[in-house]
């Protein structure tokens, strides 16, 4: 019985060394090439099998192509409706003078979810069937008709891993649609928690939209406030995402956010 035990110790030490190396090196991991290689080999198989599973599941649900089109149309309209409150506020703030282009129309690469990350029940990632060959890069915003899905974290040639909005490692800058108050929303596993950056009031039913940053495009609906906790220092709120992360199918990856927002300088009007 000494053989297996010795081998076990050796393999455990190897695994631990790999973990330590990978954890310490962060983004510039020496194993990135190896991961890419595995993605390139398993990606196409995953893509094919995942697509077939999605079609079979759709057929079992009795979902026809027409149903699917209606569903997508519905989702798009719902998302548009949610943006209306925000747009009204923005119009009020004379945003058009600044000629902000964030009306939610960005070049997008459509993709289907083919797999879900798994690590004994702890992971909150999905794999989509589009990768660097489709122009996708790490750190891009992923949306669906309902709103924000997450952001790309690892990109292979044909597949990419998406960190979901509900993941505890996920944080996004967000503002409330009616008040315009800004906060940070972080995943909690099954929803998000919003913490306001500055003071401000929070109300149940408020909708959240992304503020836009290096990573995220602005104006994407995130979720709705379900309960508010007025703390001593900061107010926090629980947020239910608009997107059902357990039933994702078609998503879009925003590949080209506006690199710089075009702004027109405001001239003081003469004589007033």
């Amino acid at each position: 019985m000494r053989g297996p035990r010795l081998l076990l110790v050796l393999l455990l030490l190897t695994a631990f060394t790999l973990t330590a190396l990978d954890a310490r090196s962060g983004d510039g991991s020496p194993f990135e090439g190896l991961r890419r290689g595995v993605d390139a080999v398993l990606g196409p198989a995953q893509r094919a099998l995942g697509g077939a599973v999605t079609r079979v599941a759709g057929a079992v649900d009795g979902e026809s192509a027409a149903d699917e089109r209606l569903e997508q149309e519905n989702a798009r309209l719902r998302a548009e409706l949610r943006r209306t409150d925000d747009l009204r506020r923005r119009v009020r703030e004379l945003d058009e003078l600044l000629q902000l282009r964030d009306d939610g129309s960005y070049p997008m690469v459509p993709a289907r979810v083919t797999a879900r990350g798994s690590a004994f029940g702890f992971a909150s990632t999905v794999t989509i069937d589009a990768g660097s060959s489709d122009g996708i890069e790490p750190g891009q915003t992923v949306v669906s008709g309902d709103g924000l899905v997450g952001r790309t974290v690892r990109v292979g040639a044909f597949t990419s891993t998406v960190l979901l909005v509900t993941d505890p490692g996920f944080t996004v800058g967000a503002r409330l649609d009616r008040q315009g108050t800004v906060g940070l929303a972080t995943g909690t596993g099954d929803g998000l928690e919003l913490a306001l950056v500055e003071g401000g009031r929070l109300e149940e039913g408020d909708a959240l939209l992304t503020t836009g940053s290096d990573t995220f495009v602005p104006g994407v609906p995130v979720g709705r406030v379900t309960s508010v906790d007025d703390g001593r220092q900061v107010s926090t709120a629980q947020v239910a995402p608009f997107v059902d992360v357990t039933a994702l199918d078609l998503v879009g990856v925003v590949t080209e956010p506006p690199r710089s927002t075009p702004r027109v300088p405001l001239e003081p009007r003469p004589g007033s």
Binding site: L18, D22, R35, A123
Partner: peptide, 13 residues
Amino acid sequence: DLTSDHELGRTAL
């Protein structure tokens, strides 16, 4: 581990 987004070696161990 290689197909996941967590550190390499965790599932292997």
